[in-house]
Structure formats: structure tokens, C-alpha cells
Amino acid sequence: MSLSRLQTATDILKARTRAYEAQAYQAHRGMALGDGGETSPLPLGASAVDRHLEGGLACGGLHEVRSPLARDIGAATGFALGLAARAMQGDRSGRRGVVWVTDPATRVDGGGLFPAGLAQYGLDPSSVTMVEPGDLQGAMWAADEAAGCNGLAALVFQIKGNPARFDITATRRLMLRARQSGVLALILRQSGEEEASAAVTRWRVNTEMSGADDILERGVGAMRLSLTLERNRAGRTGQWLLAWNPKVRSFNHAAPHPASRANPPAHSLDRLPASADRQALPDKMGQVLDRRQDFGRAS
């Protein structure tokens, strides 16, 4: 008698726990998908990517753009600026302007945005507000404030490497604030490793050889980016080759260059997810570099 009563109590508890778990899962999913409900996704313009993302990037959400090497920062900046330009273009209920917050560590070797280049890239330089706090803490505060501002089109938070202070809690805060306000929040991580974060998507950007120029034989053609969607909370990952069209402010698919260095490995993405504190990564023995292009050997 007493035993059966105990069993019923356990059952009730179990059922309740299951209900709570389901609720929490739903809530988590809702957050992960980043659909603020009222904001429509931001399409990149390239059909395959948009199909893959089910319409585009979630606007009220946090996305990370990563350049693995310091010299890839040009390409990564280009991708982030393209997204920002698209966010501004689609006049989303009077939102305007881009706030560009930089961690002072990026200033050391990164150089700064060049307004003439921005204008040619299709972004009005006068709509960019540069915020350069004196330390990382100030930069994180500024990014938080900007992510929570519902009059802003896009926020770009440029950081260098993987500072310990900018951890998963900080990204989650950014994510939540962006979700409430509908700001397109981008982390532009310069020469950083992959790290677990609350971001909806994480993109790795590598530069790619440009297409042929119609006018000049040896000329530099339209720029191309090799985009890798490393992480996608809402769906699958993927890899694409895109070009940016500054005139219509849209990304297009580009045909791969025959002499391209990027012959993507078949299973490049079948890796363990990154851990939050980077403890689980195996120790690196160093990287194998292709030195054949060095001065002495090439001639």
C-alpha cells in the first residue's frame, strides 16, 4: 500500500521533470533559432545560402564572423560590412546606422576602416559610428548597449583572438539583447580560434582568387570570398564561394577559380564542436606551411 503510493509519487515527479525538460528544451530552441517573432530574416542575396538558412540570417540575433589568420581580416571585414550594408538597405522600421565597436587590441596591427573604400563597397561612410573604448571591458559594455538599441540597423563588434573575458556569458548577453531589439549583431573575430558561443551562426571567411577582369588581362577582377558556415544552431553547416556586388548591395554565387587553392576537404566540418574554455582542444604541434613559394625556391 505504502509502496504503491510511493511509486505514484515518483511517477508524478518524473512526469513533472519531463514536462519541465520539454519546456526548457522549447525555450532553448526558441532562443537558438533566434527568430524574435517580429523580425524577418535577412537574406544574403545568394540563393543557395538563403535556401540553406531558410530565408537568411536571423536579424535580431548574434552572428560571428571569424578570420583564421590576421591577413584574412580584409575578407572577413568585407563579409561583415556586406551584411551590415544589407541590414541598412532593407529599411526595417526606420532603423539606421552601423555602430562599429573595436577592441583596442585590434588597433595594433589591424589598421582602420577607410571611408573611400567603404563608399565604393556600397556603404555610406557617414552612417558608420566608430566606437573605440580604451579597454576590452569598455568595448563589451558599448557592444551590449548598441545591441540593445532598437534604432540601430547593425552592430559590428571587432575583437582580436579569443580573450578570456569575452566568454560564453558575454555572448549570451549580446544575443539576448539583440533578440529583444532586433539589431543584427556581428562579432568580427580577427585571427581567432573557434570557440563555443551563443551566436546563432559562425562563419569562417577566407579570401579567394578573384575572377577574371574583362578589361585588363592581368587585372584584379571582382572579389570573392570563401565562406564556411562552421556552426549553425538552426540547421546544417555548409561552404560556399560568394562575390559581393556593391552596386545592388548583394552577395552572389561565384564560380570557383580553376587555380584556386581551396579544394575543400570532403569532410572538413566533421569535427568536434569547440569547447567553451578551449580545454578540450588537442595540443597543437605546429602547422605545416607550404614554403615552396618562398623567395629563393620560386625563382
Binding site: 557617414s126 558608420v128 559610428t129 532598437n150 534604432g151
Partner: peptide
């Protein structure tokens, strides 16, 4: 209202971080 949100943000950033740290081209 949205535009004012943007201006208010710029004012707030300037007040906290210092006026010369919030710039335009």
C-alpha cells in the same frame, strides 16, 4: 522613435566612454 533610439545610444556611449571615443568620418 527609432531614430531617437540611435541618437540616444550615441549620447550614452559618449557620456560613458568619453566624447572623443565615439566618432564619425
Amino acid at each position: 522613435a527609432a531614430g531617437q533610439g540611435h541618437d540616444a545610444l550615441v549620447d550614452r556611449l559618449g557620456a560613458r566612454l568619453g566624447l572623443d571615443r565615439v566618432q564619425r568620418f
